[in-house]
Amino acid sequence: MLLTLLAVSFIVFAAFEIIPGDAAVSRLGSNATKETVEALRVQMGLDKPFIVRYLNWLSGFVKGDFGTSISYNLPVSSMILEKLPITVTLTILSMIMTIGISIPLSLLIAKYAGSKFDRISYGTNQFVMAVPSFFLGIMMSWFFGMVLKLFRPGGYISYKKDFGGFLGYLILPAIAIAIPKCAMSIKLLRSAILTEAGKDYVRTAYSRGLSTMEVLYRHVLKNAMIPLITFWGMAVADMIAGSIVIEQVFNIPGLGRILLTSIANRDYPVVEAVIILIAFVVLIMNLVVDILYRVVDPRLRKD
């Protein structure tokens, strides 16, 4: 796990070496004189060789000092701590929608498997799955914002000022993120439910006098969700990484936004920290997935 993070941080650092552009130039503007730029480079330590800078940065990072943002001159840790709740809330909202909608819908679709309803939802699902979140986001912000005027695009409300308003603003972007994930979940869950429904224990459950819905909810669902755990875990990681795009569409100043601006400004301490954070989330999600497997499936628990 640590090795993975180390590798990620090195690759990000190396990428900054390769891409053109200079943090000092971007801070001073392109009409700054050569001398001022050079002076700033020395001050920022940019004149030192690549490996020395990497090791400097790394030793600070390990000690918990994430460095100072080059373009904002603020500590990276406080910048990230301020943005993190936004992206995390957005991800949680999207996940709640994905799981909360896909479970009852898949059960319903599975119950009527083979019917016209099943075929229609299959077609809709295939279509929805292929629509990217950012496109949905643009369409939704146009439709709800410009046509219905239910929502003010760009009218982001800070969670510090008005948490309710903040949540309200995040609902549309969360829907945009959740819809394709939901479609995929339904597809996977429907087939998992149908696989489980053919198993012997389901017949046993029917023999006790349960209704179809009871059999599905009480017996089939938990077993059918086992193969979905990995998908949902990856979805969380994917949502955090995907915030780069959706935050841009809805003008939300979260992690994704800060990552984009920092890349543009060659603000490598911020970029490093955000990317390592995303990598960390991916790794943590792997762990969470493993734990959830054990919680849901008693066969995987060690006695």
């Binding site: 046993t204 006790r208 006098g209 077993n223």
Partner: peptide, 27 residues
């Protein structure tokens, strides 16, 4: 069906060939 369900599990019960798969593995 709802009438039948009042019999199933209460008046008429059934056990099957495969005890390995006839029970719900996660319950």
């Amino acid at each position: 069906r709802h009438k039948l369900r009042t019999l199933q599990g209460d008046e008429i019960c059934m056990i099957f060939q495969e005890p390995m798969t006839a029970l719900n593995p996660t319950m």
